[in-house]
C-alpha cells in the first residue's frame, strides 16, 4: 500500500537539480528534470556511496559527483558497463506539490497488515 507524504512544491527543486530529504532509512535525493518530472532515489551511489543529489542531472539521468557513474533516475540502474542500482523511492506530483511514497513515515497505523 502506498503512503504519500507531501514534501515540497515543485518550484523548491531547481530544474536539472536535486534536493535532499532526510528519512529514517537515510537521505533521499529528489530530482527534477528539464521537463519538470520528479524522481527520487536513495542518495547513495551503488559504487562508493557518493551523494547522487550533488551530481549533474541530464535527461533522465544523474552523474555521480565522486567518480562519474551515470544512473537512470527512473529505476536507479547504473548505465552499462557499470553494474549497480540505487534504490528508488516512489515520487509523484499533484497540483504542483511533490509527494514521496514513505511507508516508514506513516502517521496513522494501518490495520491487518
Amino acid at each position: 500500500m502506498e503512503t504519500w507524504v507531501k514534501i515540497c512544491r515543485v518550484a523548491d527543486i531547481p530544474r536539472l537539480g536535486a534536493r535532499v530529504v532526510k528519512s529514517a532509512r537515510g537521505d533521499i535525493a529528489v530530482f527534477r528534470t528539464a521537463n519538470d518530472e520528479i524522481f527520487a532515489l536513495m542518495d547513495r551511489c551503488p559504487h562508493k556511496a557518493g551523494p547522487l543529489s550533488q551530481g549533474i542531472v541530464h535527461g533522465k539521468r544523474v552523474t555521480c559527483p565522486l567518480h562519474n557513474w551515470v544512473l537512470e533516475l527512473a529505476d536507479g540502474n547504473a548505465l552499462a558497463p557499470d553494474v549497480g542500482c540505487a534504490p528508488t523511492v516512489g515520487a509523484k506530483i499533484d497540483e504542483e506539490d511533490v509527494y514521496l511514497d514513505m511507508p516508514a513515515a506513516r502517521t496513522t497505523p494501518v490495520a491487518a497488515e
Binding site: 531547481p14 530544474r15 536539472l16 537539480g17 557518493g50 551523494p51 551530481g55 549533474i56 559527483p65
Partner: peptide, 19 residues
C-alpha cells in the same frame, strides 16, 4: 548556469569521499 556546474563550483567547496 549553476546546474551546469560540477558540485564543487556550485557549493564553493570541495566534495570529499564521504560527502
Amino acid at each position: 548556469d549553476q546546474q551546469s556546474r560540477f558540485i564543487n563550483e556550485r557549493a564553493h567547496a570541495n566534495i570529499q569521499k564521504d560527502g
